[in-house]
Design a protein around this nucleic acid. Structure first.
Length: 576
DNA sequence: GCCGTTTTCGGCCCGACTGTTTTCAGTCG
């Protein structure tokens, strides 16, 4: 298992503790950057123990951090971190996570009021120890108390689909407000991240006060946190925070660009502007003007701002500072490219509709191919099919296929991958299917090495066409398997097996970074909804967003292929 | 702490809101 995440967590902790000691902010930032760099590093820093040069060659990691990384690899601890831990109560890191409390305030709370964690903060508030501190009035203390309650109650990030539903409903409610010209959501939601911390809405309007009024009096608001003429902030009863930014009827592109982020992407863009004697903010791209007011170069469209910075327009899912600042970007896959869904369920196992009803629902959405892949026998909780039921089911699918026009049905199965990597049906049964999706279900907790072995064995099976939801994670509920994904990708590439991006927003598995690995490793991708009913076909959009974040192109996704090409690929995979 | 075809030292992105202030610090995104 890669050491990257483990060490990244330590650097993140180090950054928090440094901040609390009042360390130089740039040093804190540099430490956080090391953490982020490690998180996204495709190779394992654990393999570089004997080669410091290899570590310092990584952008953002210098000699100091390399030394600490090697120290951890050899001694299992970092002396500087241990020193910080003994200096600063580690419970203060949770206090830093309370909205409204930053490093300066937390340090004051610690030194002046003996706050060492969430519990002692609560007690300090209750005994009135905070009011006497500098810049600490009644209102501030009240806000801290409320934030504390919120932290105790809420999970920190919201699933993409949950945030999307709230955002789309808010945008729809506000778009008819008098004066509003353009309005949309931005932020990590627009970038299609699998979870979002809050929702950012951008609007241009000639009457900001009217819009602010409407926004802060929407239904389902738990608290209005800020209300100004350019910015408002609310917390919904769901716990989700929504920020509204209002702009005059100019500069929509600059605003959208700024608030779409990511922060890391924006930092690079701004630096690029500075290198050209320019300045980029949410109001536009400006040119220095000999001490006079800077001159506005461009603000209306994202395309023009990028162009002025010498870049092509960068699609929001790519805006993560993960290599997107290049002259030529790939053409990302879109919903309209998708012709088939190769993972779906019917009443034969745990779906809600019959074969024919699913086929009609898929056809109605413009799909040309639908694979019916009900659960295999070991998934008894999902009414998985034993061999006799499966044989009858194959016949039933073929019969519906013979009688329906405009869509091709494939008789498949979502076959459980057992703990050791063996499959839930014998080969002679699998050979009777038109397509095989093999997925890990139980167990979902396994040592990384065992999980890697399990998945490699499954993708290497000649009768397996697609590896379904490879890690079996459930967002905000369980972490799932942690295989060496690069090794799984390599095995899948060798055996011509596609890796699935399961579009169900509870899964989004492969996740974005894994999809990117798959693209770089050369294996095929399959984007499927895993639909258990008609409305779940509409979840495809989330799978597409994840695919775009993984730099997936249409030609590498088997669901974009013609029926003939798809069938040929399935057949070819089975001869090996 | 990291970085560098103008630099191995001196920089490191920008602006709004809140709550406390009488001119601004801290936080957030």
């Amino acid at each position: 298992m890669s050491k990257n995440q483990e060490i990244a967590d330590l650097f993140e902790e180090m950054a928090d503790l440094l901040e609390l000691t009042g360390a130089n902010a740039f040093r804190v930032n540099a430490t956080r950057k090391v953490a982020r760099t490690l998180e996204e590093l495709p190779s394992d820093v654990g393999d570089m123990e004997n080669d410091p040069k290899q570590i310092t060659a990584i952008d953002g990691i210098g000699a100091g951090s390399a030394k600490r990384i090697i120290e951890y690899l050899q001694d299992d601890q970092i002396a500087d971190l241990e020193a910080l831990r003994s200096e600063v109560p580690t419970g203060l890191i949770q206090v830093l996570g309370v909205p409204g409390l930053g490093p300066k305030t937390v340090a004051t709370l610690w030194k002046e009021a003996n706050v060492t964690g969430l519990e002692s903060l609560r007690k300090a508030i209750d005994r009135g120890a905070l009011e006497s501190l500098p810049r600490m009035g009644k209102k501030t203390v009240d806000n801290i108390r409320q934030s504390l309650d919120f932290v105790a109650a809420a999970s920190t990030r919201y699933r993409l689909d949950q945030a999307m539903q709230e955002a789309e409903s808010i945008v729809a409610s506000l778009s008819s407000t008098p004066g509003v010209n353009k309005i949309t959501y931005a932020g990590s939601l627009r970038r299609g991240r699998d979870t979002v911390g809050d929702v950012d809405i951008i609007a241009t309007t000639s009457k900001p006060d009217a819009l602010a009024e409407r926004f802060t009096s929407l239904p389902e608001i738990a608290k209005v946190q800020a209300k100004g003429s350019t910015k408002c902030s609310i917390r919904r009863t769901s716990g989700l925070q929504v920020d509204l930014r209002m702009f005059k009827n100019v500069g929509y592109g600059a605003a959208l660009l700024h608030f779409t982020g990511s922060k890391e992407h924006n930092v690079v863009l701004r630096q690029r502007a500075i290198d050209r004697g320019q300045r980029l903010s949410e109001y536009g791209l400006f040119e220095e003007n000999d001490g006079d007011e800077p001159r506005l170069l461009e603000a209306e469209s994202e395309e023009n701002i990028y162009a002025a910075l010498g870049l092509p327009w960068i699609p929001p899912p790519l805006r993560e500072d993960r290599g997107e600042f290049v002259d030529q970007l790939p053409t990302l896959i879109e919903i309209k490219d998708i012709r088939s869904d190769l993972h779906s369920h019917t009443t034969a196992s745990d779906g809600k509709l019959s074969i024919e009803e699913m086929a009609k629902a898929a056809k109605k959405r413009g799909l040309k191919v639908l694979a019916i892949t009900d659960h295999s026998r070991s998934s008894f909780q999902a009414n998985g099919l034993d061999v006799d039921r499966l044989k009858a089911h194959i016949d039933a699918i073929h019969e519906v296929n013979d009688n329906i026009k405009g869509i091709t049905l494939l008789a498949g199965s979502e076959v459980d991958i057992h703990a050791e990597g063996n499959l839930d049906y014998e080969d002679d049964i699998l050979a009777q299917l038109d397509i095989v999706v093999a997925s890990p279900h139980m167990p979902v907790k396994q040592e990384p090495a065992a999980a890697t072995k399990r998945l490699i064995r499954a993708v290497s099976h000649p009768l397996v066409n697609i590896l379904g939801h490879p890690t079996a994670r459930l967002i905000n509920r369980r972490a799932g398997l942690e295989p060496d994904m690069a090794a799984v990708v390599a095995a899948a590439t060798d055996s011509n097996t596609a890796l699935e991006i399961n579009a169900n927003p509870m899964r989004l598995d492969l996740r974005d970074t894994h999809a990117r690995l798959a693209m770089e490793g050369g294996c095929m991708i399959s984007i499927n909804t895993d639909a258990h009913g008609a409305d779940q076909f509409d979840l495809l959009r989330y799978g597409i967003m994840t695919a775009q974040r993984g730099w997936v192109t249409a030609d590498r996704c088997i669901n974009t292929w013609t029926t003939a090409k798809l069938k040929k690929w399935i057949a070819a995979g089975r001869t090996s």
